Simulated assay, not measured.
Amino acid sequence: MSLLATLKDAQKEAMKAKDKPRLTAIRAALAEVKQREIDNQTTLDDAGITSVLVKLVKQRKDSFTQYTDAGREDLADVEAGEIKVLESFLPQPLTEEEVLAMIDATIADTGAAGMQDMGKVMGVIKAKAEGRADMGKISGLIKQRLSA
């Protein structure tokens, strides 16, 4: 079953269960998917929908941090709930060992020799790990590997 179909089924289940917080998060995800499809005049595949979900989770984490810093725990709790709902649709996260193995294999496959090859390695890794690992951390690990 595609990720879009999974999201739509989850929306129906949330409606039947009258689970408003879950329904709100799922509707936001579906709206963003539809908006991206309209903007790009294309139909998103599972990888595209995953990137939308990653973006939404990142936005909610930023909002969570801002609300917590401002002392608005009520709003921070809402964001935390939406993060949990959206992350439930993302693939299983990679462990640090899996990430390091993927980086080493990609460096070997691409023949990367130094920092000038950072973009080449990052492009391959991003396609494999999108939604499953923090790309900022991966970037730092690649820099360590290439500069060593």
Score class of each variant (00 low, 15 high):
residue 5 A to V: 12
residue 8 K to M: 12
residue 9 D to W: 06
residue 10 A to C: 08
residue 13 E to H: 11
residue 13 E to D: 14
residue 14 A to G: 07
residue 16 K to H: 13
residue 16 K to A: 14
residue 20 K to M: 13
residue 20 K to P: 06
residue 20 K to L: 13
residue 21 P to T: 07
residue 24 T to R: 12
residue 27 R to T: 03
residue 29 A to R: 03
residue 30 L to T: 00
residue 30 L to M: 09
residue 32 E to I: 02
residue 33 V to T: 02
residue 34 K to L: 13
residue 35 Q to S: 15
residue 37 E to M: 01
residue 38 I to G: 01
residue 38 I to E: 15
residue 44 L to N: 00
residue 44 L to M: 05
residue 45 D to E: 09
residue 48 G to R: 05
residue 51 S to Y: 02
residue 52 V to D: 05
residue 55 K to E: 11
residue 55 K to M: 13
residue 57 V to L: 05
residue 58 K to Q: 14
residue 58 K to S: 15
residue 62 D to R: 11
residue 62 D to C: 07
residue 64 F to G: 04
residue 65 T to H: 11
residue 67 Y to K: 14
residue 68 T to F: 07
residue 70 A to W: 10
residue 71 G to E: 05
residue 71 G to I: 02
residue 73 E to T: 11
residue 73 E to L: 12
residue 74 D to K: 06
residue 76 A to D: 02
residue 83 I to Y: 08
residue 84 K to L: 13
residue 84 K to T: 15
residue 85 V to P: 02
residue 86 L to E: 02
residue 87 E to P: 06
residue 89 F to E: 06
residue 89 F to P: 02
residue 90 L to P: 07
residue 91 P to V: 01
residue 92 Q to D: 15
residue 94 L to E: 04
residue 97 E to D: 14
residue 102 M to V: 13
residue 102 M to D: 15
residue 104 D to H: 13
residue 107 I to L: 07
residue 108 A to D: 10
residue 109 D to G: 07
residue 110 T to N: 03
residue 112 A to I: 11
residue 113 A to G: 13
residue 116 Q to P: 08
residue 117 D to C: 05
residue 119 G to D: 13
residue 119 G to N: 11
residue 119 G to K: 09
residue 122 M to F: 13
residue 122 M to R: 02
residue 123 G to N: 06
residue 123 G to W: 01
residue 125 I to R: 00
residue 126 K to N: 14
residue 129 A to Y: 01
residue 131 G to I: 04
residue 132 R to L: 06
residue 133 A to N: 02
residue 134 D to Q: 12
residue 135 M to V: 08
residue 137 K to R: 09
residue 138 I to T: 03
residue 139 S to W: 11
residue 142 I to N: 00
residue 142 I to A: 00
residue 144 Q to P: 03
residue 145 R to I: 05
residue 146 L to H: 09
residue 147 S to W: 03
